[in-house]
Amino acid sequence: MSISLEDVRRAAELVTFGLRHGARPTDGNPYGLLLHRYRTEAAFSDLVDVLASGLGLVVLGTPARTGIVVTTQPGSVFAIRTSDLRSTNMGPEDKLVAGLVTLAIAAYAFPHPRDLDSTDVKIVEVVALDAFIRSAIARVTATTGEDGNDAQARRAADVYDRMSAFLPKANQAGPAKGCTQWAIGEVLGWLVDRGAARPAPTMGATTYQLTDRFRLLVADIGGGEALEALRTARRESETT
């Protein structure tokens, strides 16, 4: 199969769908048709992968419920940073805690390696996740890894442990900035904005469903002692 300029345009369009997290593929819409080409035409699939690579992206997979999932290479202009979190006035400690919460969500939902191959729906709830993180604080602070992420996780665990679980807002329902339930809500909202989670209001006002996009992103991360400590805590909680 020869590659035309139209094929290049279509490949770029599919990569764009991967970056546009609200888009959903169906059998008949343009996204679904391009996804079908990626899965069935080797030359088109290779073209999409090469084009993504040139933009500093990597295609992780194409799950039916989510569509094409891309992540960033180091230095990519599309890299996600903690400064991209929804709140514009987060201090250094807030961002540390946000990083720990993200690791904890990964460990809570996918404590076993086999979980990353499963498309079972994963549900997380703010208060339950907060209780889980608090139960695992000692394990995280006891890690000795010299990796920068592990060191940040230890500092974040110390900060988290000093914070109140819940502080009420002055004039409305919900947690106020400065407590850990607020921090968890911010991270989950950030994941929703990126197509990695969606609200599940029928199960509770602070309940979320993680998507296949989040599962593939977790499978792509290298791990580290802090993540493994959280996973161990989650596995143990499943047996008690």
Rank of each mutant, 00 (worst) to 15 (best):
I137D: 01
Q181H: 13
A197H: 07
A233P: 06
L100S: 09
A23Y: 03
G189C: 05
C179E: 08
D193E: 13
L5M: 04
V218W: 02
D27R: 15
G148F: 07
D94C: 08
V58T: 15
G54A: 03
G75Y: 03
A151K: 03
L227K: 06
L129V: 06
G222Y: 02
G145H: 10
V159I: 14
G99Y: 05
A173Q: 12
D161A: 14
A104W: 01
A170H: 11
P201K: 00
L188W: 01
E238F: 00
R20Q: 15
G18T: 11
V127M: 07
R215I: 12
G204I: 03
Y208L: 06
V101M: 05
G224D: 03
A151C: 02
V8R: 08
G204K: 02
V77I: 09
G174V: 03
R234Y: 01
L35M: 12
A23I: 09
G174N: 07
T40P: 02
R37G: 03
R139W: 02
A229D: 02
A109M: 04
G145I: 07
F166A: 03
G224L: 03
L217D: 02
I3Q: 09
G32Y: 11
A176C: 01
R114D: 15
S83M: 09
T141D: 00
T211L: 11
E225I: 02
T62P: 06
A104T: 10
V69Y: 01
V159S: 11
E125D: 10
P92Y: 02
M163Q: 12
R154E: 01
R81A: 14
A104K: 06
M203D: 12
A153V: 01
S87T: 03
R20M: 14
A23V: 12
D130W: 00
R10C: 12
S45M: 08
G54S: 05
M1P: 15
F132S: 09
E6Y: 05
Q181P: 12
L210N: 08
T40S: 10
S83P: 09
D7W: 04
T211S: 14
T202C: 02
L19A: 13
S45Y: 04
S4Q: 06
T143V: 15
G174R: 12
D84P: 05
L210T: 11
A173Y: 06
T240C: 10
G224K: 03
I184C: 08
R81N: 13
P201N: 07
